[in-house]
Design a protein around this nucleic acid. Structure first.
Length: 466
RNA sequence: UCCCGAGUAGCUCAGCCGGUAGAGCAAGUGGCUGUUAACCACUGGGCCGGGGGUUCGAGUCCCUCCUCGGGAGCCA
């Protein structure tokens, strides 16, 4: 008898003899026809459960089936039949049911058929994937990750594994986690009293990466189109529904490209992912639309169909200043836009995704390419309704003298950037790229509210239990 | 880190002007039923976040710490 996954069993023709294996979601009993149990069985392969009908005449019914409750693992041999009840078209008429793993103490099993708050489920992160919502998140997360690789592969991008541990302290994107094997209780000191990192594992200070961008630029300058997709670490003490200490980031980098090409890539990228997701995980996306964010599918289709607007930062500031809207933080040229500004632009004013471009150089990173006006750099942010900024990118400064000028202005040590600067000395080309936080993308496509609920085991300040 | 808010049964919460705890759901048992979020009955289940204080007496008032949530900043 063939073992079918639940997703395949639900599609199989009536009459198919099959075996199914999975976990009980619920069990309901009926005394009709001598007694039977209806078991909703799930194996994680799709959103829907498969109904198993176990009749009282089954061998061992009283001491096996009658004890089944949420979470129990079973195997069932039987036949797929048209359902005699409402609510499902097919069901499995069990010929044999084997209990694989019981729930020892149903009273304390944390996952019950009632609704649980996401806050509570975070405390049982090892079990929460058994719920509808977290099963759907897991499948969508996977589908999106695969879609990302598929998108880049189809366009001749190479997937580059940039290092997790970095000994350069020059990535400059926030607080870093230290990597060290030194004995904290007995730190080696130099004569001046400072810690002697020469005795540390790498012979110098080392940290977890905050971005793969600088590394991936090196590969871009030989392979033309590359991307990273890996874990990223920030030791910021930020406690919000949009931040994690450990998250996954996608960073493509393209050679012989300017900011316009970068923006075009970002738009094509987002739309391609949405399109694939809505097709391949239609079941889970319907679930999110029905149970998590009503209107989600309409929102995503809108993003999919509308061309993204392009707007200069300078223009955006003029619109904001003339909006008559009272913002908590006033807007003027030269300041970074707050999330309230971004949200107003994309949600209320334009009501569609927009790519803001050419920001003041003083509020952007040193590596961004300086524009001829001397005031702005070729940076871009993609803003979408509900989320605000989802992608940030730029054309990189490929001219050594311009890069050095910025390093000097910002007081950054040129020698620390020696290999990054080398790229500008040996066959430099215009290039650009962007960064996308994977979990932010998941918030955007699922309608989930808290970023800790779209990663299996969230890491945040004081949170690393699982 | 800052500003709010919250910690009471497995979960979600109520608990007034201080007088040593209650509901719904879940769970267990029984009943009813081709059942499918809330059918009926019964049963078990509580260091009221930790510590300190005021009081004859604290879930309730005060102080403090911890944890969680929302918002802000930082950002992805």
């Amino acid at each position: 008898m063939a073992w079918l996954k639940v997703k395949d069993a639900l599609q199989a023709p009536v009459g198919t003899e099959l075996t199914v294996k999975g976990w009980v979601r619920t069990r309901r009993d009926s005394k009709a026809d001598g007694g039977m149990a209806f078991i909703a069985l799930g194996d994680g392969t799709c959103q829907d459960a498969l109904q198993v009908v176990a009749r009282a005449s089954l061998p061992g019914y009283a001491d096996a089936v009658a004890k089944l409750g949420p979470g129990c693992a079973i195997e069932v041999d039987g036949k797929l039949v048209a359902s005699a009840g409402k609510g499902q078209s097919v069901e499995v008429e069990a010929a044999e049911l084997r209990v694989v793993g019981l729930v020892d103490d149903p009273e304390t099993y944390p996952i019950t058929p009632k609704k649980h708050s996401f806050e509570y489920l975070r405390e049982v992160a090892h079990l929460r994937v058994r719920t509808n919502t977290f099963g759907a998140v897991a499948r969508v997360r996977h589908a999106l990750a695969i879609a990302i690789h598929r998108f880049f592969d189809a366009r001749d991008f190479y997937y580059v594994h940039t290092p997790i541990i970095t000994a350069s302290d020059c990535e400059g994107a926030g607080q870093m986690f230290r990597v060290s094997t030194l004995d904290l209780a007995n730190l080696p000191r130099r004569p001046d009293g400072r810690i002697d990192f020469e005795q540390d594992f790498f012979g110098r200070e080392a940290h977890l990466t905050v971005s793969g961008q600088l590394s991936v630029e090196t590969y871009c300058q030989a392979l033309s189109r590359v991307y990273t997709f890996g874990p990223t670490f920030r030791a910021e003490n930020s406690n919000t529904s949009r931040h994690l200490s450990e998250f996954w980031m996608i960073e493509p980098e393209i050679a012989f490209a300017d900011l316009a090409a970068d923006a075009a890539l970002a738009e094509e990228f987002l739309k391609s992912l949405l399109d694939e997701l809505l097709t391949r995980r239609a079941d889970d996306m319907r679930f999110f639309d029905a149970r998590i964010e009503p209107g989600l599918l309409a929102r995503l289709k809108h993003v999919l169909e509308k061309p993204f607007l392009r707007l200069d930062y300078t223009e955006a500031v003029k619109i904001l200043e003339g909006s008559g809207k009272r913002f908590e933080y006033p807007v003027r040229w030269g300041v970074d836009l707050q999330s309230e500004h971004e949200r107003w632009l994309t949600e209320e004013h334009l009501k569609q995704p927009v790519i803001l471009m050419n920001y003041p150089k003083d509020i952007k990173a040193f590596y961004m390419r300086q524009n001829p006006d001397g005031k702005t750099v070729a940076a871009m942010d993609v803003l979408v309704p509900k989320i605000g900024e989802i992608i940030g990118g730029s054309q990189r400064e490929e001219r050594l003298e311009k890069l050095d000028q910025r390093l000097d202005e910002l007081g950054l040590p040129k020698q620390e950037y020696w290999w990054y600067r080398d790229l500008r000395r040996y066959g430099t080309v215009p290039h650009a790229g962007f960064g996308l936080g994977f979990e932010r993308l998941l918030l955007f496509v699922t309608g989930m509210q808290n970023i800790r609920d779209v990663i299996p085991f969230p890491r945040a300040p004081r949170q690393a239990e699982f």
